[in-house]
Computed example of a mutant assay.
Amino acid sequence: MNLLENFRILDIIDIILVACLLYYLYKLVKGTVAINIFFGICIIWVIWKITQLLQMEMLSSILGQFIGAGMFALIVVFQQEIRKFLLLIGSTKLDRRSGFLKHIKFLQDDEVTMTKVEEIIRACESMALTKTGALIVIQRNTNLEFVKNTGDTMMIEVNKPILESIFYKNSTLHDGAAIIEDNNITATRAILPVSNERNIPLRFGLRHRAAVGITEKTDAVALVVSEETGQISYLKDGDFALFKNNEELIEMLRTDLS
């Protein structure tokens, strides 16, 4: 009875927030090697709490020291997952996701430029038919200046012929990635960080690994056209997004960029 009498509304909120935090941590590590480590930590923490409850001083002290000192090791082990979690929190833009700002006239741009998603996908479809390899990175909230600096600076409006000409096999611009911001191609031949993730199937080459790498380190999304198979891949959050057809891909990309 005393426990129920001392139970506050803030305790309920506390439990809900912890549950949400654990849920999002689980989503970040789901499908990776880190999921086994995550479950291992949870098991050790439960055992530690049980030993404290049973007043098993020696075992409780050993587990307590392990958990305390292990936090520094966890930062190293979960480096990629922590990066994704912080990007998830820090990449929120008030001007895009808060409704009240759209009512303040002087905070609005005179003209809102939307990425021509259909043009990008149609270009990918055309390159897929001819098995022309392509790597396109589309910026969302995270600044991609560190990637753009590795390539050739441009400022060309997105359209199907331009994208096809950039990745044409005999073009000097086809190596590396094309960077798109809003509705402009702002860089070509950009060099992307390559992922060291071992779960990527061997059939995927360097383009796909580079796409995984940039979407791991930023909130950008990437499109890859395979030079071997002509298959179009869509990547976000360091993983391959599944889609049934190109029309569904257009809707998915439009949603992710909105």
Rank of each mutant, 00 (worst) to 15 (best):
S165M: 06
T113I: 10
L173P: 03
S226I: 10
E181P: 02
E5C: 15
V117C: 06
V137I: 02
R254Y: 02
G230Q: 14
S226A: 13
E81A: 13
S226L: 10
R97W: 08
L74N: 02
T142F: 15
L253R: 01
K217Q: 13
I250N: 15
V29P: 04
A134P: 01
N149E: 11
R254G: 00
L192Y: 10
D152V: 13
L249P: 00
L101W: 13
F7Q: 00
V112P: 04
A187N: 06
N6K: 04
N199I: 11
H103D: 14
K131G: 09
I191D: 11
K116L: 08
V212M: 14
S258R: 02
Y23P: 07
C42R: 00
I232N: 03
E157K: 06
F167R: 00
E118S: 09
R198V: 13
I200P: 05
I214S: 01
N141G: 11
H103L: 15
E157A: 10
T255Q: 05
L59T: 14
I47Q: 08
Q79Y: 14
I35S: 07
T215C: 09
N159R: 05
N246W: 07
E125T: 01
L63D: 04
G68H: 13
G90W: 13
E251M: 00
T130K: 10
S126D: 01
I47C: 15
M56P: 04
D256Q: 07
L135S: 05
E118I: 02
C124Y: 01
A177Y: 04
S98Q: 10
P161Y: 00
F100P: 08
D95P: 03
E164D: 01
L94H: 05
L17Q: 05
E181W: 03
I41Q: 11
A187G: 02
N36G: 15
K105V: 12
